[in-house]
Amino acid sequence: MFAARLACQREHLNTSGPAGTQDTDLKYCYLAKAAYDAYDHGRCRYSVDRMLPALGLGDHGYVATAFLYAAVNIVPVEHQQHWIGYVAVADKAERDRVLGYQYREIVVVWRGTSALDELFKDLEVNLQPIHGEESNKLVLVENGIQSLYATSCDSDACKNNHGSAKDHVLAELRRLVTYLRNKCPGDKIHVTATGHSLGGALATLTAWDAAAHEALAGVVVRAVTFGAPRVGNQAFCDELVGPRGVKVHRVIVDRDVVPSLPPTSFGYADAGSDVRLLHSERVVPVPFLTLLVSWHFHSLKEYLRILDSDYHERPVQVQVQDPPPVPADQFLPLPEAELDHQLNLTLPS
C-alpha cells in the first residue's frame, strides 16, 4: 500500500531533512507524477473519480475533486485548452497519519510541460506585472507562465471549462473550503500547491492567489515544488513569503539546471529559503551532451529515483491501452454527495 511504502522509505532515503519532510516530499512527488501519467494529448485519460485509483494511488489518502484546464494562446493559432492538473482533498486517515489531528489538507497538483506549445510559453521569460495589475508594477512574474495560468478561454474550442486555470482553481478552493468548514467544523484547513517544473511554477502562482483570497481567510497556504524554475522578481518573492505568509518548500536535484532559470541577471529571484537539495550519484555516460545530461537530471523520474529507493522495482502501474471515452459530465467537479461518500463525512449534529 502507498502509506506502507512511505513508512518504509524513512530508513532508506539518502537525503537529510526535518522530521516528516522525507515522507511528505515523496507523497507530493507521486501526486505530481499522476498529473503526467494521466495526461493524453490535451485531455485527462480518466474521469475525476477514477484517475487516482487507475494510476495505483487509490490508497494514497486523497480524493480527486476537480480537473484544471489552461488556455494556451500561441498567436496566430486559436486558443487551445489543455488539461493541466487537478485538485484533491485528504481523507480522514491521511489527516490523522501525516497532518496531525484536526487538520485537513487540500492539494492543488499541476502538471509540468508536456506539449510543444506549452514549451513555447515556458520560453516567454520577459517579466510583467502580476495579473497585469498596473497599480502593482513592482511585483513582476514571467509572462509565459502567467499566460498559461491566467488567460481565459471563452471560445467554442474550450469545451471542458470556460475561464482561466486561475479561475478554475480558485473556484474549487472556495467550494472545498466551504464544504470542509460545514462538514468538519473542528478541522483547520491547509492548502498545498505542488508540481514539477512548470507545474511547480504554477503552484507558486496558486499559492500567491490563495493566500490573499478572502474566502480562504485563516487557511494555511504553502507551495511544495520539484525542479521548478524561478517565477518572479525579488518583490514578488518577498511579498509571497512575507505579507502573504506562504511557506515555500523547494526540492531540487543538485545537477538540475532548471531551478537556476531564468537567470537572476534577467531580474528573477528565488522564492523562499526552505530548500531541500537532493544529491544524484548517477553517472550519465554521455558527458559531451551537456543539454541532454541536464535534462536527464530534471526529469521527475530522477526525483522519484532519489526519494524512493524502491521506485525502479515497483513503479506506479499505468494503464497502457486507451480507456473508453469519458462522458463529458465526468470532467465536472466531484459532487458533494460523492465527496460525502468518499470522505465518509456527514453534516455535524
Rank of each mutant, 00 (worst) to 15 (best):
324 P>Q: 06
311 Y>K: 05
307 L>R: 15
311 Y>H: 14
306 I>K: 01
310 D>Q: 08
308 D>P: 02
305 R>P: 00
326 V>T: 01
311 Y>C: 09
304 L>Y: 05
304 L>Q: 08
302 E>N: 12
316 V>A: 00
328 A>R: 01
326 V>D: 06
310 D>K: 08
300 L>T: 07
301 K>E: 06
323 P>T: 06
314 R>Y: 13
314 R>V: 13
306 I>Y: 02
302 E>W: 10
308 D>N: 12
328 A>M: 02
316 V>F: 01
315 P>R: 14
309 S>V: 05
327 P>C: 10
326 V>C: 01
307 L>Y: 15
320 V>D: 09
302 E>L: 10
303 Y>L: 04
310 D>S: 06
317 Q>L: 15
317 Q>A: 14
307 L>K: 14
321 Q>V: 00
309 S>C: 09
328 A>L: 02
307 L>S: 13
315 P>F: 08
330 Q>K: 02
318 V>L: 03
316 V>G: 06
325 P>D: 09
313 E>W: 11
314 R>S: 12
306 I>C: 07
329 D>V: 00
315 P>C: 07
304 L>E: 02
310 D>Y: 06
305 R>Q: 04
319 Q>K: 11
308 D>E: 15
313 E>T: 14
315 P>T: 03
300 L>P: 03
325 P>R: 05
311 Y>S: 08
313 E>Q: 14
319 Q>C: 05
322 D>T: 11
312 H>D: 15
